[in-house]
Design a protein around this nucleic acid. Structure first.
Lengths: 390, 390
DNA sequence: TAATAGTTTGCATAGTAAACAAATTAATTA
DNA sequence: TAATTAATTTGTTTACTATGCAAACTATTA
């Protein structure tokens, strides 16, 4: 708990005002005063400061059919900066540029050899420099406001990579290297954390939000009161290694019967494989399922997935759970079967839904994190501007 | 996010100061200034306000062997109030009186017929009035500062009882009745939440704390940054119904293989019963185990308990987990066996320990909650005054 | 005398209320 | 129809206030 002096309260109110400007695409000073409860005079001084800093701009409105002076609209200055979100996965690296209104400006998929960390990093920096150069087109307007990086592994609370199961990275520092290369603040976090953060930022805000990412493993991201839950050392969310089958399949983690051996997307592929066919992409699987009945495999998969979802619900009583999974994206009807399996009396949640962000969630969340840090706000609400390519 | 004005900042600093006075049994104004970073003048005005309100008192110190003026010690005024914590369980109701320094003043065990809610409440109110009368001895000094109530069931965020599995209470209001009877604020919460809160308040503060209560069921209480995690509607922590054995034993909740069917204290009793002997109290069990080898039952119990503990660790990456269990209280050596079973690479926690508060945790937490609300602080640290009977 | 505790005084700051200025629509009047 | 007036809303200015801060001051004690 921090002491309060006039500097503290000034920053607090600045934050409150900025958060509203971010949330509501167009606001006048008097609307800000109404929404925040702050005095009109206070709003004026604070907004004028933000104008001087170039963070926001004034624009005119269309004529209104109400009497009285027309309001001057305050909005984010798009030329004040842009953010970059990077999702470094084993096989492909997803890069998304966003403007300060949260809109997706540019996107690129890189294919880096992630097994050699240093050369991957060199390659990433070089390619990113090219992309930024093209985007800024010679000038340096808008400037780079910050970079967010998602790692599929454990990242501690100081943006340091602790461990990644796929590449076996141990204690590596991507933050410092990128900060030196781009002279902008870099924030690194676990991909599940950034995915849920993206869902949080681009969806209507509730008190809490949980996001299950089902790919080669299972990740759980949790947002409570706009804060990502990271655990004591940033290790939270290793829910894939929740044991749901004692003496079950052996897991590289050292235990038996971990959830992700049964309910990850990879586990589903394996189930199909055991029944004969081999698949490597979701498209192949979807096509296969159109013509072939795989009721038994699907039933088994849903059975185990539902066990874990039941557990998450009983532990957290979440308002909303979002499932980010290629399988569910292509077969949304499976969701009903999961919901039907949640039979416990104590299962209490408000909404279970499928992600609309899918594979881009992590990179978008990374960009949103960079944005949040750049502005110094606590809450980012970009629900008004869904991050389409346009 | 609230706006900041002079009133906000004044309360903020008042809270910071009060929290330090609560935490450190004896502090002078100048020490407060050093600790909080606030100016000496600010401390003086704020402390003088607290003195006027009668919340704190000044006492003299012993002679120090340092030069300079002796400090005036500020401490909580014990005559400013006392709190009551009530743990309403199926068979017995535990009542603890605490002073404003967190010390246990008085304790009483009541045996109420909890199956008839209304008559239980009448009886409770009457007995409590007697207890308070005896304690205050005719006068009304110290006054009753607040009452906390722990319920073994689901309590929503408005202190309303939603459901208790044992007594089958549904949608009942204990708060209003007690507030009318005692003219003091009443706060109701789930017993696992209050138990972890007690551990938090009476232990050295860390960033987070998790407490597993193993009695007839299993409860999980979570404290993060001094805030009890309650979930969306206050239903969080129903971890006893986490499924750890698919198609396992049937549970009244509607599912199969819930954790508490395998790892609650009751489940251990059942295991022993299945092997021949029947026990009803922990003393009987402890005595039995002194003479009889029950290696097989213990091994099975530890096996299932460890699965759930593994899951908690992987989901939360907690700093500390506390086990509150009659079995572990009488056989602390079992803890090593649990720790030995946590084999996952990802198991990351700092400390797994056995509760020192045991059956009193809930009532102490209830009293601490009442204290917190009474003072209007966010953090309560009573680690200096372990709540012994003296 | 030196050191430490605590108070007093005057100042700086940022928010507030209220008055004011500006801009715009709607109604009224010439 | 055109000009005037009223009403309404936005945003700024001004005087004021509460509170924290720094520094000077008083009090107390080895």
């Amino acid at each position: 708990m921090h002491k309060g002096d006039w500097n503290y309260i000034r920053n607090l109110n600045r934050r409150v005002i900025l958060e509203e400007i971010v949330k509501n695409a167009s606001l006048s000073r008097s609307e800000l005063a109404r929404i925040t409860g702050l005095n009109k005079a206070t709003i004026s001084t604070q907004v004028n400061d933000l104008l001087e800093q170039g963070l926001v701009i004034e624009t005119r409105t269309e004529a209104l059919d109400t009497p009285g002076r027309k309001p001057i609209i305050i909005e984010m200055n798009e030329n004040a900066g842009f953010t970059v979100g990077i999702d470094i996965d084993e096989l492909s690296t997803n890069i998304i540029f966003c403007d300060l209104k949260g809109r997706r400006l540019h996107q690129k998929q890189l294919h880096l050899d992630t097994y050699h960390f240093e050369s991957m990093l060199d390659e990433l920096i070089q390619q990113l420099q090219t992309e930024i150069g093209v985007f800024q087109n010679g000038s340096s307007i808008p400037p780079l406001a910050g970079i967010g990086v998602g790692i599929h592994g454990i990242v501690n609370n100081d943006s340091q990579i602790v461990y990644t199961p796929k590449q076996q990275w141990v204690d590596l520092d991507v933050k410092t290297r990128l900060e030196q290369a781009f002279d902008a603040p870099v924030h690194v976090d676990n991909s599940a954390n950034l995915s849920v953060y993206a869902e949080h930022v681009y969806a209507k805000h509730g008190s809490d939000l949980f996001c299950l990412t089902l790919y080669s493993g299972i990740g759980l991201g949790m947002v409570k009161d706009s804060v990502i839950y990271r655990g004591y050392q940033g290790f939270a969310g290793e829910i894939g290694h929740m044991i749901i089958e004692p003496d079950g399949k052996p897991c590289p983690c050292g235990n038996h019967g971990c959830w992700e051996l049964y309910a990850s997307n990879k586990a589903f592929f394996k189930l199909l494989h055991e029944s004969g066919d081999e698949f490597h992409t979701q498209e192949q699987v979807s096509k296969h399922l159109e013509t072939t009945d795989a009721e038994q495999e699907i039933a088994e998969y849903i059975f185990y997935l539902s066990i874990g979802v039941n557990n998450v619900i009983n532990i957290f009583n979440p308002e909303r759970i979002i499932i980010n999974s290629p399988l569910f994206a292509s077969m949304p009807e499976l969701l009903d079967r999961v919901e039907a399996s949640l039979q416990s009396k104590f299962n209490n949640y408000d909404e279970l839904k499928i992600s609309g962000l899918n594979e881009d969630a992590c990179a978008l969340g990374a960009a949103a994190l960079a944005f949040k840090k750049f502005l110094g706000v606590h809450h980012v609400d970009h629900s008004a501007s869904f991050p389409s390519s346009q």
